[in-house]
Design a protein around this nucleic acid. Structure first.
Length: 418
RNA sequence: GCGGAAUUGGUGAAGUGGUUAACACGCCGGAUUGUGGCUCCGGUAUGCAUGAGUUCGAUCCUCAUAUUUCGCCCCA
């Protein structure tokens, strides 16, 4: 038997219902927020991700699916969605007018990592990118949008964590102060942090091992190392979030794994047993230098991405999603009736009524069961005797009332009662 | 990339080194000679993740592989 590749999964049955529900809600929300749909390639040139996500990030150094095509082009399966959107924005010269551009997408992303609960090698992200506005109001809006959407889905225990990374200069200043503070304590840190001290000191902040030590508790605060302008900006974002009634907490140790972020960064966390260690369901931030770094004009941007698999997992805690109900199920026994069932189904379907009937040779009893499994509202029970008189039996599957309808009026009757 | 656990039908699962692998749900058929969802009866794994080994004999022991899962790392 051929099995699915490691870290992939099939969306079927209950999962399919959950995904459809999420997708409908996403579509609805993005319309109300006036976000335009965008689709970009699943694979891009390798260089794009190296330059956008960052050469030294874990995502690029050890998690990408890289391959060469038959013409030796170096390609990479996208590990995230922002780079492709920004590339498209630049390549199609969308920066000329109509700023800001607001895009949303859903699509599969690929990261070669250890699969587990809420982590897959092929996974789906819903994301939004707003290019061309540096207004703190946009920061607040892009945080409140998924926040509202998740609440609408039924999630209660949402925690929004925000932080301000400031400008590149701010971060350089802070890194210097951080290293200065940590240098006498290096030997007390965990092995990973010793390495991070040189490569990416900011990441020490959210280390799980050293988190509770005195050293990290008294670490300098990134918010104290920012310019007045940066601080003012952050205060505006928080003020707007208050107005939008987003319940947030400032987490000065929140740093993100992608290099392109500056100023506002945020995570939306869902506290639930089901998700275990994978409780961040959406995350994003501002990336004001990325367009420029990818050879476009200087354009301030912000975006977020949300992992649909994690949401689907967490939805198990919510009430059951009901299956799509069928308007009508046709039951028959003999060949003559079967032919009639087929033709009736065709006429009804053309009229916009959802209809089905058995094609496996089931007994009449089983056909009733099958109708119930499909949550059929009306049953058409064909009967040769009545058919000869031009009559068709229609049974209401709720009230169990059955009536005989003239063959010529059947379509109208079903359409108006279905 | 490192360490732990798991893998029996459509599903939930019990079980044993030796004839026909419990039980339940589901599904299919019948009782009900064309109107069901209750009841009763019957059927439903030539196989216990895959491959190899030990053995007279393995689903059960050993090893390898795959997948899943928990923690680390990282992230959505």
């Amino acid at each position: 038997m051929i099995t699915k590749p490691k870290g992939t999964y099939d969306v079927i049955e209950k999962e399919a219902l959950k995904l459809q529900k999420i997708n409908r809600l996403i579509e609805f929300y993005c319309n109300t927020y006036n976000y335009d749909f965008i689709r970009t390639p699943i694979f891009e040139s390798r260089e794009l991700f190296h330059r956008a996500v960052g050469d030294e990030t874990d995502i690029v150094t050890k998690e990408t699916y890289d391959f060469k095509d038959r013409s030796e082009r170096e390609l990479t399966l996208r590990p995230e969605g922002t780079a492709g959107v920004v590339r498209s924005f630049i390549e199609n010269k969308l920066y000329g007018s109509n700023l800001p551009r607001k895009f949303y997408y859903t699509g599969t992303m690929y990261r070669y990592e250890r699969p587990g609960n809420g982590r897959n090698r092929e996974f789906t992200q819903f994301g939004v990118e707003i290019l061309g506005s540096n207004d703190p109001l946009i920061d607040a809006e892009i945080i409140s949008m998924p926040y509202n959407l998740f609440q609408d889905l039924g999630f209660k225990d949402l925690i929004v964590k925000i932080n301000n990374l400031g400008t590149k200069e701010d971060r350089e200043n802070y890194k210097r102060a951080l290293k200065e503070y940590l240098s006498p304590h290096i030997h007390e840190l965990c092995e990973d942090c010793k390495r991070r001290y040189e490569t990416n000191p900011l990441r020490i902040l959210d280390c799980k091992v050293d988190q509770d030590t005195e050293i990290l508790k008294n670490v300098p605060n990134i918010l104290d190392y920012q310019s007045e302008e940066s601080k003012t900006r952050f205060n505006k974002v928080k003020e707007y979030l208050n107005f939008l009634e987003v319940d947030y907490e400032v987490d000065s140790k929140l740093v993100r794994g992608l290099d392109y972020y500056d100023f506002t960064v945020f995570e939306i966390v869902l506290e639930t047993e089901i998700l275990g260690g994978a409780s961040t369901i959406a995350a994003g931030g501002r990336y004001n230098s990325l367009v420029e770094n990818l050879d476009g004009p200087k354009t301030p941007c912000i975006g977020f991405a949300c992992g649909l698999e994690r949401i689907m997992l967490a939805m198990d805690e919510l009430e059951e999603i009901e299956k799509r109900a069928l308007d009508c199920y046709i039951l028959y026994v003999n060949e003559e009736e079967k032919l009639k069932a087929m033709m009736l189904a065709q006429d009804l379907r053309i009229s916009g009524v959802s209809v089905d009937y058995d094609t496996t040779g089931r007994s009449l009893k089983s056909q009733f069961k099958e109708a119930d499994r499909n949550l059929a509202r009306l049953l058409i029970i064909l009967n040769s005797e009545d058919l000869k008189k031009g009559l068709i039996n229609v049974k209401d599957n709720l009230t169990k009332e059955e009536i005989k309808i003239d063959e010529n009026e059947i379509i109208d009757y079903i359409v108006s009662n279905g």
